[in-house]
Design a protein around this nucleic acid. Sequence first.
DNA 1: GTGAAAGCGCTAACAC
DNA 2: GTGTTAGCGCTTTCAC
Lengths: 377, 377
Amino acid sequence: MPATIRDVARASGVHISTVSRTFSAPHLVNPETRSRVLACADDLGYRPNRAARALITGRTHNIGLIIADIANPFFPPLIKAAESQARQRDYHVFVADTNEDPAAEEELVHALAKQVDGVLLCSPRMSNSLIEQLSREVPLVVINRQVAGLPAVVMDVGQGARLAIDHLLGLGHRDIALLSGPRGSWTSREIRRAAAAAVRAGGGDLTVLGPNLPTETGGTALAEQVRRCGATAVLAYNDLMAIGLMEGLHDLGLRVPGDVSVVGIDDITLSRLTRPKLTTVATPTAAAGRTAVDMLLQHDSPAATRNLRGGGRSSAGDDRRTTAQVMLQTELVIRDSTGPGPRAGRTDGAAGVEHPGPHCPAGPGSPAVATGEVVAS
Amino acid sequence: MPATIRDVARASGVHISTVSRTFSAPHLVNPETRSRVLACADDLGYRPNRAARALITGRTHNIGLIIADIANPFFPPLIKAAESQARQRDYHVFVADTNEDPAAEEELVHALAKQVDGVLLCSPRMSNSLIEQLSREVPLVVINRQVAGLPAVVMDVGQGARLAIDHLLGLGHRDIALLSGPRGSWTSREIRRAAAAAVRAGGGDLTVLGPNLPTETGGTALAEQVRRCGATAVLAYNDLMAIGLMEGLHDLGLRVPGDVSVVGIDDITLSRLTRPKLTTVATPTAAAGRTAVDMLLQHDSPAATRNLRGGGRSSAGDDRRTTAQVMLQTELVIRDSTGPGPRAGRTDGAAGVEHPGPHCPAGPGSPAVATGEVVAS
DNA sequence: GTGAAAGCGCTAACAC
DNA sequence: GTGTTAGCGCTTTCAC
């Protein structure tokens, strides 16, 4: 039913290749012919079939974005940033949700492989070796995970966890619980590692609870365990769990931060709307989305388009993709869910016990704005 | 780099058409040949190119889902339901976000058109005539809007608004404000129409504020206006705005529901986590997603596959798509953000002033479970 | 049961 | 500046 290039050619009395050129290289066709063709095309409601075009050019101008869980408010800012960045480069983004299911991830990469020029794999739950294998099928950029040999952008959650723990220690907490994230999460491992080290260094005690579903429900379900383990402060894998935990503690009759302090990670919008407002580690999600798109599209510089005209050979040498790994800084945002612990006052190092304000920059001397930093190339 | 059908043919010593059959109609090929081909394919890491296949079969086995704003927690349940329903029918869903921008909607439909077998247009902001025109390019199912001649699934927000207003009236409120939604929203118009009628019937007074951005920020920004207009109860276009409004009122020193009662629409997860918990109109979003997928795929019944074998001609007659419009029921969920108004006690009709419980079914006699109801066909 | 040939809608050399 | 020809990776008659 929809018009094809042949219909337009027939209607405008030119060869199909002229019609083709009218759309893909307009400057190569006589202005008069061009406008005639355009008129006919418009008339017939013709639009080039991108899939057919891709078959021969090898470029779809689409990019895939695979997300563990669209319902997690952590992701939308990343998705939107990726989309707007892609749009600027004349690409479209197709998002797909895996429901935290590793099998669905693999399945989706395969499904997307031939319909996109590359895929952004966000917070994957599958194994490194599988990711590596899939990367041979379609260009991949991994987000929130480091895989040897693959371009990646991660947030420095290790640093974030450290800041959070130091904040807690500084407030006089000694018994700290960590609500870990889902099995297979790189982020969760990094947090755990950093938190353990920081607690040890501060002479405290860390209880790890998990792995868990990174949702409110997951957090709520842990309230009882948190009480039993005797922790006076908790660091959660993400804000959702932290918020769920606060609910659960509330139902148990425990006060936040009176009885237990809670820190989240991500700084989702919601964390500013709870009562008490959540202290959390802000991660630069939008920047991550933008950066990932740029890394995926780095070889497709606007220059390539310019090079098409004239006999100048297009630079074939820069096809080599540099597989950089970018790490984005995080910062601690202190709000109302953290307060003095049992050893408050006895504190001898660390930061002051009083809240420095609603939006305090990370560690001493660290920049207030999260910036990208190339770690390896 | 990736292996093509020709590579597999060469490796297994058969013609490419045999390889093709091995994947698309295995029962037509000799078991021995088949396993040999499969082995070679596996060896080479061959996977059929879905795009190329689509070019000739005309079916991509993908469906597009265009969403106004992924960050709005109203949508994820719908997206997930659509995805799981699609997966069951062996389809993949590509989601795209338009940022509430009508131009982006059109652009995306075009981009998706040839890469999917149909698109689900969710809460479109563009004009009906444009939608109709686009529907000639690719099969469309509209969600949250009724467009003449097009299949659609909508929630009965009119009924929801009526329930909400009656609840408020019953509590003794007379001056009611309506926070309307974004320009171009069908839902917003329906809500307004129904709310106006219900308020009038109840002898109350309705002030309409808007149009607005359907976000927390949008709601917060309206707190001042709500106070000035003297309303003691507010119905918001959605939960996000209602929650934002509660924040704004709180900052103004007004108590909810003490000074003003607030009702939202959607019943997003978040509405159970605010303090006070939000009274709201629950909409069956998951059901909407499932239903929309079913409507889009109705002509592609599993029977079609069965018909392939044998000489039995596939039923060509049922290609005619029935353009049904489905309307899903809504229900009022009474929580803690609504309370007695200035005329409490003087009430003579309607529901009692006391909260009937945390999860009360809609109107008197209406079913507790939202069910689909075909309104036209 | 398998091969040969045509062709889906389009682009990319190459002639003229 | 435009037409010709080949062919992207695959499916689908049609012979055999």
